[in-house]
């Protein structure tokens, strides 16, 4: 059986990241975008933990990962609050309708 090394984690992480970005780029639904963001963040977490295990051997990466999870939770809460407001204003969560920031 093939030993699982750093490379495998990195490849998984890259795949997750790509899927996340793709999700963000294609979804018009705000919740979908939020899921994409979560994917990207978690791919980063995976990287952090993997590097921490194979590269440095210290617990730093784990701690960072915990922080990121925390942040992701906060961010999700905020984002959903924004979407609620957004929905209240335009009766949809289609992000393409929110182009008032256009320069």
């Amino acid at each position: 059986m093939l030993a699982v090394g750093l490379q495998h984690y990195l490849i998984l992480s890259a795949m997750l990241f790509s899927l996340g970005v793709l999700c963000m780029a294609t979804k018009r639904n705000a919740i979908g975008i939020l899921i994409g963001v979560e994917l990207v963040l978690n791919s980063a977490n995976l990287n952090l933990v993997a590097f921490s295990k194979y590269q440095t051997g210290t617990g730093d990466g784990h701690i960072f990962a915990v922080f990121v999870i925390l942040l992701a939770a906060a961010e999700a809460a905020l984002a959903i609050a924004i979407f609620m407001n957004f929905y209240n204003n335009v009766r949809t969560i289609d992000v393409d309708r929110g182009d008032e920031l256009r320069g």
Binding site: A25, R28, I33, D96, G98, D99, R102
Partner: peptide, 8 residues
């Protein structure tokens, strides 16, 4: 021009 306000 790219700044069309669309997140995508």
């Amino acid at each position: 021009r790219p700044q069309n306000g669309r997140i995508r």
